[in-house]
Computed example of a mutant assay.
Amino acid sequence: MAIPPIFQTKHFDDFKFEQRLLPWQEQERYERIWQTTDIVNLQFTASFSPITVQLLDENDDIVLALPALVGLPNIYVPGAYLFSVNMSLATVNTGCYHFRIIAGPAGPTQKTYTSGCHYVSQDPIPQSILIEYFHSMYHEDVIFETGIKFQCRMFGHIGFLDPGRNDEFFRDQRYNPGLLNSRTVRQWPVFFGNEFGLADDDIDLLNRIWSCDNVFLDNKAFGVSDNSKFEFTEEEYFPKRGVTITVEEGINRASKIFALNLDTSKKIMASVNVESTVFGDTSNSGSSNTVPVHNITVE
Rank of each mutant, 00 (worst) to 15 (best):
I245A: 01
W188M: 02
A199F: 05
D202G: 04
G242D: 07
F238C: 03
S211P: 07
T184E: 11
I203H: 00
V215W: 02
F170M: 13
Y237E: 10
E248H: 08
D172F: 08
G242M: 05
E248M: 11
V243R: 01
A199S: 15
D204S: 07
E234G: 03
Q173T: 14
N176Q: 15
N219R: 15
R171D: 08
W210M: 09
K240T: 11
D218F: 13
R241D: 00
D218T: 13
P177R: 13
I158D: 00
T244R: 14
A199K: 05
K240A: 02
N227P: 05
F222E: 07
S211F: 07
F196S: 14
S228R: 08
I158P: 00
K220T: 15
R208M: 09
E235F: 00
H157D: 04
G242A: 09
C212L: 04
P189Y: 02
Y175P: 00
L205T: 15
A221L: 10
E234C: 06
R186V: 06
H157V: 06
G193I: 02
G223Y: 11
N166P: 04
R186M: 05
I158S: 00
K229D: 10
I245Y: 01
S211E: 13
I209E: 04
R171L: 03
C212K: 10
C152Y: 03
T184W: 10
F196R: 13
A221H: 14
D226N: 08
D218A: 12
R241W: 02
I203K: 08
M154A: 12
P239N: 10
P189R: 08
R174S: 14
R186P: 01
H157M: 05
T244P: 08
L206Y: 03
L205A: 14
N214V: 12
N194G: 15
F191V: 08
D202W: 04
N181G: 05
V247G: 00
E234P: 03
F232V: 00
F192H: 01
G156I: 02
